[in-house]
Structures are given as structure tokens and as C-alpha cells.
Amino acid sequence: MIIESTMKAVELLFSFDSEIYTIIFLSLAISLLATATASFFGTILGILISISDFKLKRFTKKIVFTFMGIPPVVMGLVVLLLITGPFDGMNLLFTKSAMYIAQTLLVLPIIVGNIIISSEKTQKKILETATTLGANKYHKITLLIKEIKPFILMSVILGFSRALSEVGAVMLVGGNIKNDTRVMTTYIALNNSMGEYSMSIAMGIILLLIAFVLHTLLARFRGDFYD
């Protein structure tokens, strides 16, 4: 049965079925957009938290690290309650925008947390050296960003992996509507529940291929840094 379903899945992929490719495109588009937004704000936040001294720093870091592991379905629930509660008037429920918001919030702590960890490891010596060479705060922040660039790229890739592979949040706030808010993971979940394993396997193959490319990139950045 596994072999038969896999053969069917490969056939499906090469049949260039428009529904399948629309789903793949939507998944990639939303996850990329969410990761880009989270990366922009996450990098700034992560660096600011790591280089600043403030009263609730330890507590803030604990919150960030806790949210790094939040189950997607819980994040979906939080966004669902927000868009059907205080932001009800914006009509976001079961829209691509809601999926984008949920994924952005899911990825943000991953980027912030990873940047805090990597930045705190290296920043003290780098910032101390820059200070003795006459660098001001702006120079120090730009230097730090350049020095931890491989870690930032690794965080972004990890964040994108998380966005692309999560199912709980997009299912709750997007509703898995055909030709509208259906993405790869919700498509797999739906077909799985209906016993259409070949469809699920086809999407699984695509997800695995994307994961392979991402982790090859990740390994390269790691290698660049540690060589």
C-alpha cells in the first residue's frame, strides 16, 4: 500500500495538477512573508534585548524562550480569539491574512530567541573590542549584526521551517478552504482523514524536498561559521 500510494503521489506531482501547485504556492508565499516579517522585527528585538541592560531582562528572555516552543495550535487559538474578539471588525477569520498573522507570531519568538542565544555568546568580547577602538552605539550594533550574520540566517531558516511545517495554527484561523486558504499541511491532514494517502504522500514529498534544501543551506551556514 505504501509503494502504491507513493507511485500515485509521484504521478500526481508530474501531472501538474493546478490545485496541488496552487496549494504549494500559497504555502510558500504565506510562510515566506511571515518569516520575512518575523525576521525583520525579530532581528532588531533579539539584538536590542541582548545588548541592553534593563530591569526585566531575565524575565523577558524567559518569556521569549517559552514562546519558542509554543504549540502552533495554541498560537492559532490565541489569534482566533483576537480576530473574533477585539479585532472582529476587521473580518480576518478564515483569510490568508489571519494565517499570515498566526505564522508571523509563531516564528517571531524563534528568531528573537535564537538571536539572543547567539548574540550573547559572542557579543561581549566583540562589543568590548569595538568600544576600545572608538565605536559608538550605532557602529557596535551594525558590527554585531555582521558578526552574527550566520546565526541570523540560521534562525531565519529555522523559522521558515517552522512556518511551513505547522498545521494547527493555519487550520484554526484559515479554515482549510479549498482554493483559498488550503496549504500543504492542512491538505495532508484533510486527505489523511479521508484515507487519500497518495495525496498526502505527494505533499509530504514536496515538504521533505523543501526541508532538504533548507537544511542543506543551514549546514552550509554552520560550516561557513565554524570552518
Binding site: 568580547k125 566583540i126 568590548e128 573590542t129 576600545t132 577602538l133 572608538g134 558590527l143 555582521k146 558578526e147 550574520k149
Partner: peptide, 23 residues
């Protein structure tokens, strides 16, 4: 103006030339 050179040299991830001209 004062500068301190530590006993464990901390260089930046860039060329030797770019490290030297950083200040």
C-alpha cells in the same frame, strides 16, 4: 584617546585588511 588590546585577540569575521582599517 585610549585603546586596549586584550591578551586574546578578538578579530572580526572579515579580511585582515578590513580588520585593520575598522577604526
Amino acid at each position: 584617546e585610549i585603546t586596549y588590546n586584550s591578551q586574546e585577540p578578538i578579530l572580526f569575521n572579515r579580511s585582515t585588511y578590513e580588520n585593520i582599517v575598522y577604526p
